[in-house]
Design a binder for these strands. Sequence first.
DNA 1: ATACCTTATTGTTTTATAGACATGAAGTCA
DNA 2: TGACTTCATGTCTATAAAACAATAAGGTAT
Lengths: 219, 219
Amino acid sequence: MDNELSKYEKPSVTVDTVIFSIKENDLKVLLVKRSSSPFKDKWAIPGGFVKIDQSLEDAAKFKLEEKTGVKDVYLEQLYSFGSPKRDPRGRVITVTYFALINSDNVKLKGDDAKWFSITELPQVAFDHNTILDYALKRLKWKFEYTVVAFSLLPKKFTMTQVQDLYEIVFNQKFDKRNFRKKILSLNILEEQEVMRNVSFRPPQLYSLKANIGEIVNIL
Amino acid sequence: MDNELSKYEKPSVTVDTVIFSIKENDLKVLLVKRSSSPFKDKWAIPGGFVKIDQSLEDAAKFKLEEKTGVKDVYLEQLYSFGSPKRDPRGRVITVTYFALINSDNVKLKGDDAKWFSITELPQVAFDHNTILDYALKRLKWKFEYTVVAFSLLPKKFTMTQVQDLYEIVFNQKFDKRNFRKKILSLNILEEQEVMRNVSFRPPQLYSLKANIGEIVNIL
DNA sequence: ATACCTTATTGTTTTATAGACATGAAGTCA
DNA sequence: TGACTTCATGTCTATAAAACAATAAGGTAT
């Protein structure tokens, strides 16, 4: 190793990923129970040390797949936390990510992982409450100004599903007619077939158009 | 040092700060000339290694003051870059910041530092062009939706100065009347005295009100 | 003192966007 | 065929954004 790099004592670097999903009509976040000290038996954001030849995003993806089995998800870097005292074991800088997954087909691996409603979070390890707050703010922002919400839905979805999703995240009701008008006017959706075999008026299915620029001012 | 932390080979961590300012009616960024390998004599974003007991933000502030002598500036974390190959010397993760300073009273220390117009950037070291692109995007976003622009102005300023600043950053002209109306309607400014000793109609001076929430949708 | 030069300040009309609001339509099932 | 459930839709009003040009306040030069 080169001289200049070894001149300084190096911090450890971890990646932690806040994984959001919708389950039971509620916004959930995935936490794992710590099996060892420090904060043994406390819940924590899933993460791990960055391998020396692994990019930050790869590290996040690796942990995400390890915990949830899903690969193609929305993943975005959040923020890096590096207060010298945040880990009692020594200097640990964490680069945080947040992920949105459609949890329909997710089977959690092991019973150390659990979905928590964001309204009923347990006590968490380290400074992970700060990270969760930050992630939630970012999530709301992203819902308001970008198209990421659709990563939480199946490929084909109804307008009602979209609206339900926004109402869950913002904890607020929207007028049906205005909501539909707004979303449709953005020109980001494609009509698909209508749903079959429902015992009421069959809803129109939509899919998100490919190649939408990210920022679109949704609400 | 504890066992688990020393189990993994650690990366080096640096902090790089993209420093913006307005000079000569132009948006400028501060770069420093590298004095040693790698990329010797190439220009780079000012930065340095994070000390083992120094927070990330403190590291950024320290470098910023070292280069510019200014202390109270707008400073915000940008993004962390951690591709394993970004530094030929070994694994180096960089946490980037961006800063806005009013350069009126800044005297650069040493001649290895220089202001570059963002329209005439030189070739830069490492992946610093990616970082500069990212910083510029963030800057524009911040100008559109927050009040940070005023960090580039003196404490008391005229409406024309505000408008000039926005026109420089967005490289676009705005209608005077609509611009003033918009800014004033935000209710973020306080009238100060009018300017004296100018050979034309003396402009009203304004200052930014204290305790403005950050996000206000300026444009 | 007056004409002139420079920059600052202001208001109205038009257009687009957001918000409030209630009824009929399309299926299934009994 | 009537009842039930969810889906789909249109108009009016209020607010915000955009387009647009004339006058005001000083200083300077003659």
